[in-house]
Design a protein around this nucleic acid. Structure first.
Lengths: 213, 213
DNA sequence: GTTGAAATTAGTACGAA
DNA sequence: TTCGTACTAATTTCAAC
């Protein structure tokens, strides 16, 4: 239970100050802005682009790393070029109180790139990358369906990945034209059909069962 | 139209050889394996871990970059720590022949981290990161719903991100116990209810409308 | 494709503002 | 805290093999 409970639970408190870690100021954010675009930039060049001294850049860089704000540095690669040109999303309905088993099985599936627990009709969404559509078929029928924790699945293919930002920062939002003021935060959490929108609420009591089966 | 049409369209041809770029051998793959875990490793250290000379590592590293196999280096950061602790998935139904407009509007939404065009009930899935649930509400009702290209949306919240691998490589799959042989690749593309599985096919003719509205 | 040596740059330590 | 500088270690580049 990382996201909603820790930050979305209460409307109070400014964003950016969660937990006991270091406070993030605008300089930290600038550093992150540079590093998301170029994760291999030298600390010297980073200091120059952010407008601080090298020593300061080293200190802050290390602090961000040590504090877990920066989780890791990675390379984005072209999956088609490596032979994994097929991407699929598999929405999984998990049997209650079998989450632990589901997680354990996930760890044994290397073709799974991403897995998130969601509200709505299904319980989890996993993203897989494989070489051809037959492998998706095999994966869903032979591997996923054989996990007792899996009650049902629904698969869709990704035809194109239109956009992938390294990650989003609060500063991006501020750069936008209309900064929306917060309003009625409670209403948005239930089933609220508003015009074209449709929110899908979580099943009863599921939220409490996430981390520990 | 990047993924399915280029690799999944025909069953022939070995994976890993798509397009006219450089051929990727096992050494290239080893390099990618290292770089996905540590995007900031020096080329010298990389050479040592892969078991090749420095000069060779530099050549291959540069080739992978120039050829686009490595698209960029980035930092993975803790979104909760930066104040964007709420993650939501918005499934969008797009009005036919308005894809170009939809893409243009997406580019103007900095809170969108990822967008993929999918088969199935909806046309696209976008992932957004914001500070609180109210912002999701505002975004869907005020911004997305006002785009003429958007016919309908369905929103779910991400309660927990269980797993995020930097990316998947074919070598991961080979490390698995049971390597599945390909079989009936055609059947997997349609609506084939098989036991617990349910494939959701694409709407008619939508595949052809992806890149160019 | 590899090795080794020169030039450059990165990382560290420490005193001053 | 942050900056500036000097010092040490490592990396990158480039040459010959």
């Amino acid at each position: 239970m990382s996201d909603i409970s820790r930050n979305g639970g209460g409307p109070g408190g400014p964003p950016g100050r969660i937990g006991i870690g270091l406070e993030l100021d605008s300089v930290h954010m600038k550093i992150l802005e540079v590093l998301r675009e170029n994760g291999r930039i030298s600390v010297s060049a980073l200091a120059e682009r952010v407008g601080i001294s090298r020593a300061n850049a080293y200190t802050r860089f290390e602090a961000l790393r040590a504090d877990g704000v920066i989780k890791r540095f990675t390379a984005e690669i072209d999956h088609v070029r490596t032979g994994l040109g097929i991407t699929a999303l598999i929405f999984v309905t998990v049997r209650q109180q079998m989450w632990r088993q589901f997680r354990a099985e996930l760890a044994r599936m290397p073709e799974v790139e991403y897995c998130a627990i969601t509200t709505g009709q299904h319980d989890a969404m996993i993203q897989v990358r494989v070489a051809d559509v037959a492998e998706v078929h095999t994966m869903v029928t032979d591997r996923l369906a054989n996990i007792p924790a899996v009650k049902a699945t629904e698969t869709v293919f990704i035809l194109d990945e239109v956009l992938r930002r390294p990650y989003v920062l609060p500063s991006d939002r501020d750069a936008r034209a209309n900064r929306p003021a917060r309003r009625m935060p409670q209403e948005a959490q239930g089933d609220v059909p508003l015009g074209k929108m449709r929110f899908v609420g979580a099943a009863e009591g599921r939220a409490a069962l996430r981390k520990d089966d």
